[in-house]
Design a protein around this nucleic acid. Structure first.
Lengths: 246, 246
DNA sequence: CGTTGAGTTGACCATCGTCAACAGGAGTGG
DNA sequence: CCACTCCTGTTGACGATGGTCAACTCAACG
């Protein structure tokens, strides 16, 4: 039987948890997520409701239009969020990174489907439990609303990309966008991780895999990026940014 | 000097207002908007903060990136919401109809620009005043959050349209979408009002005016619609809906 | 009436999608 | 260990959807 890790022995006793689990107070994405709105005592309440879950690549977290009985806070990995048309066309409406919250809407059915791109860890809450917590914590609701309007802003920016950008600009905006989001999670990066497939990228940008592939190789030929396994290194971030600003 | 209209004489005295103004309690879009969350007394508080404003066509309500000192509740008319790229390309991210609320995000700068398409009436609130009201009315915040997540859902649906729909499907989805939204305001309609220009429609759908024009005339040739001044009459709503569902 | 601006229509063209072939890596079984 | 398949990604040839450019109509307005 392994000893309880040192970092767990010191936590305040009010917060009981299963042996070996790290508490919310130590969570590295706490300040990025809804949890930032809560003080230490409230965090214990939240933690009591949370259930740590793990999803292997391609496993689904939930499916569009099914009853939304759970909401998730992603702590590790990448999740793709998408809508399908009856004929099979797919639009990825976003990639959830650590710190992102799925279930902002508190609606009774999911508005899109979500599945893991790489191994994912997430805190799972029952919608009911979380909703009750929300009822007597207006500052938590404020935080939720903040995050929701932030998502709305991202969605509106993506509408500009989808409606008015060329293929080249679309790929550039994905790379710069992901770089900036990873920076908030992991600190500044020059090599942008791209764990999702070309098909995922294409379905996010409203393109085909071939166009995504061609555009990336063109960027590589022009020494703006270096393609590495599961990512790209930005050799000339300025030129890449220029493409997104034009 | 005109007499005070009969419908105004009977309102409860707690709600004082300028002569001739109709109170929130009588507002025809009250139940569609944030105001639905408030009881009669709270409505008076809100009314005290509200300032009735009017905008002529093409007048701007606010501009992207400028300080967001006011928020608006549209009571009449149509407003276009858009983002501009430095080179002049424009993406319209939505049309606000009566009942819609501009300023859901409560951010300190506007995330997009807004201007009147036709004569617009709106209730204007200072952001500060509204924010204060929000602080001790959690149910108002809940309502705001509800509306924000609804907007988010619309934005995500529009991402599917922009990313994965053909020109024909795009135009059809605009017509069906507007028809359903007008129905919530005015009751069921067969003639969908299109007060915005072809350029506006094009910039909403990620197309050009020519493609919008051609698509509409093709629909008309095929007897799916009848083009009338400032709108279209849906002759075959089923076929139109089929185009949006495919 | 002349001017202006929105909308329509046609001819042509470019960007991006389609289709197909191929390369390389991972996993599987002889 | 090697052949085989499978899957993802790349590259090329070709084509279609929708964009560009231009001419024209028509209504509104002076």
């Amino acid at each position: 039987m392994p000893a309880v890790p040192a970092e767990n022995r010191a936590v305040r006793p009010s917060c009981s948890r299963a042996r070996g689990e790290v508490g919310c107070a130590k969570c590295k994405i706490r300040l990025l997520s809804v949890c930032a709105a809560l003080d230490e005592n409230e965090l214990c309440e939240l933690e009591a409701l949370a259930q740590q879950t793990v999803f292997e690549p391609k496993k689904t977290l939930f499916i569009q239009d099914e009853p939304a009985d759970a909401i998730y806070n992603i702590t590790d990995g990448v999740v793709r969020l998408y809508k399908l048309l009856p004929d099979g066309r797919r639009q990825i409406i976003g990639f959830a990174l650590p710190g992102n919250f799925l279930g902002l809407s508190m609606a009774d059915r999911y508005g899109f489907s979500a599945d893991a791109v790489v191994p994912v860890k997430a805190c799972r809450f029952s919608r009911e439990g979380f909703s009750n917590l929300l009822d007597d914590k207006p500052h938590l609701l404020r935080r939720l609303h903040e995050l929701a309007t932030h998502e709305l802003t991202l969605a509106q920016d993506q509408m500009v990309v989808l409606g008015r950008r060329s293929a080249e600009e679309k790929v550039a905006s994905l790379l710069i966008g992901l770089r900036d989001r990873w920076a908030r999670v992991n600190g500044v990066v020059v090599t942008v991780p791209l764990p999702m497939s070309r098909q995922d990228i294409a379905d996010f940008l409203g393109l085909t895999i071939e166009t995504v592939s061609r555009t990336l190789t063109r960027f590589a030929r022009e020494k703006i990026i270096l393609i590495v396994p599961d990512g790209v290194r930005l050799l000339d971030p300025r030129r890449m940014e220029a493409l997104t600003e034009a």
